[in-house]
Design a protein around this nucleic acid. Structure first.
Lengths: 208, 208
DNA sequence: TTTCTATTTGACCATTTGATCAGATTAGTG
DNA sequence: CACTAATCTGATCAAATGGTCAAATAGAAA
C-alpha cells in the first residue's frame, strides 16, 4: 500500500536520476548502470522503461524544456520595462539556482551543436524569442528604453544568468564561496537588474 | 625534404585535431581512433606521442590555456576605462571567433566541475581576476565609472562574450545566420562595449 | 657499415557498456 | 479462480574502445 511505486512515479525517478548523470557526465559519458544503481533498480528495468540510452536522454531533455516553457510563459509582458526585466531575471536566476543541472545539461547540448534540439529551437524557442524582440522594439519606439539591438540584449540576459549555473565551479572558486545560496542569488539578480536598467536608461525608482 | 614532419610538428597536428574532437564530443565522447584518422596516423602512433587519452586531453587544455594567458597578459591596463573595456571585449570576441572550439572545450570542462583545472583556476585565473577587480575598484574610487560589484561585472563580460562561442548553434539559429563572420563579430563587440559603457556612466566619445 | 635510439605500426587484448531475451513475478479483469 | 497483459530482472551478448607489445623502419652518430 501507499508505496506509490507505480509506473509513472518510477519513470519520474529515473528521469530525475538520469538528468543528474547526464548533466555531470554528458550524453556519452553517462553510464546506464550508474543511473540504474542510483535509482536502486536493475539496469534491465531502466531499459524496459526507456528502450535506449538515446531515448532516455531525449526524454530528459523534453522534461527540462517543457518545464522551462511553462515557467516563461507565465511571464506577463504587460508590465513596464523595469518590472518586466526584474521578473525575467528573477525567474531565470531562480531556475538557475533551483536546478543548475538542467541548465548544465542544456548548455552541453547546445555546445555540441544541439543535435537533439533542432525542432525545439526553431519551434519553441524561436517564437518566444521573436516575441521578446518585438516587445523590446516597441519599448524603444515608445522611448521607454534606450535604442539598441534587441537581439543581443536578450542574448546578454540569457548569457549572464545562465553563466551562474554553467560556470558555477569557476564562479564559486573566484568568489571564495562554497555554494550558490539564496543570498548570492538575490544579490546577483539585483546586480543584473540594476546594470541592465542603467544601460537602458531606466531609472531606479529609488533614485527617481 | 621539407616535409616538416618532425616530432614537434606532428604533435602539434595531433593536438589541433584532438582539440576539435574533444570540443565537439567531450572528453568521454571523443574517440582516439577518430582523432588518429583525422590526423592520418595510426592509433598506435597517437598513443606513442601521448601515452593515454587523459594525457592527450590535458595537453590540449594546457595549450588552450597558455594561449589565452598570453593574449590577456598583453592587455595594457594603463588606459582609460573606455579604452580598456574596448580592448578587453575586442580581444575576447576575437578569440571567440577565431577559435570557438577552444572556448567550447573549456566550457564543457567547467560545466563538469573543472576536474582537470583546479590548479589553473586558482593559480592563473584567480590572480588575473583579482587584478581586474582591483583596477575596477580603483576606477570606482576615482569616480571614473559608476560604483557597482566589480566581481559580477567581470563575470558579465566573461559570460556575454563566451556566449557567442559556446551557444553559437543557438545564436546563429535565432539570428538566421550561417556563420559567425567578421561583421557579426564587430557588431557584437560594438554592442557590448556600448552597453557596458552606458551602464557604467562612461559617455561615448561620439556623444560627448 | 655498425650501433644505438627514436619513431612507426599492425596485431592483439581486456574491459566496458548498451542492449537483448527468456523466464519469473505482479497487477488487473471477468 | 482463471486468464491476460504489464512489469521486473538475472544472465548473456556483440560491439566498441582504450591501451599494450613486439617487430619493423628510419635516423643519427661513430
Amino acid at each position: 500500500m501507499g508505496t506509490l511505486s507505480n509506473t509513472h512515479a518510477l519513470q519520474d525517478r529515473l528521469l530525475t536520476v538520469a538528468k543528474e548523470e547526464f548533466a555531470k557526465q554528458g550524453l556519452k559519458g553517462a553510464r546506464l548502470q550508474k543511473i540504474a544503481d542510483e535509482a536502486q533498480v536493475p539496469k534491465a528495468t531502466l531499459l524496459y522503461h526507456f528502450k535506449s540510452k538515446t531515448v532516455l536522454y531525449q526524454r530528459v531533455l523534453e522534461t527540462i524544456l517543457s518545464a522551462w516553457d511553462e515557467g516563461f510563459e507565465e511571464l506577463t509582458i504587460d508590465a513596464e520595462p523595469e518590472i518586466f526585466f526584474r521578473r525575467l531575471i528573477d525567474t531565470k536566476i531562480a531556475s538557475v539556482r533551483t536546478d543548475p543541472l538542467a541548465s548544465k545539461l542544456f548548455a552541453q547540448e547546445i555546445i555540441q551543436g544541439a543535435p537533439h534540439l533542432d525542432a525545439h529551437l526553431s519551434q519553441q524557442v524561436k517564437p518566444w524569442f521573436r516575441q521578446q524582440v518585438s516587445i523590446l522594439e516597441q519599448w524603444m519606439d515608445e522611448g521607454k528604453i534606450r535604442r539598441t539591438d534587441p537581439t543581443r540584449l536578450i542574448f546578454l540576459i540569457w548569457a549572464t544568468t545562465q553563466h551562474y549555473a554553467d560556470f558555477q565551479a569557476q564562479v564559486l572558486t573566484l568568489m571564495n564561496r562554497q555554494e550558490f545560496d539564496a543570498e548570492l542569488a538575490t544579490d546577483t539578480s539585483t546586480f543584473l537588474h540594476e546594470f541592465i536598467c542603467n544601460s537602458l536608461g531606466i531609472m531606479d525608482p529609488k533614485h527617481r
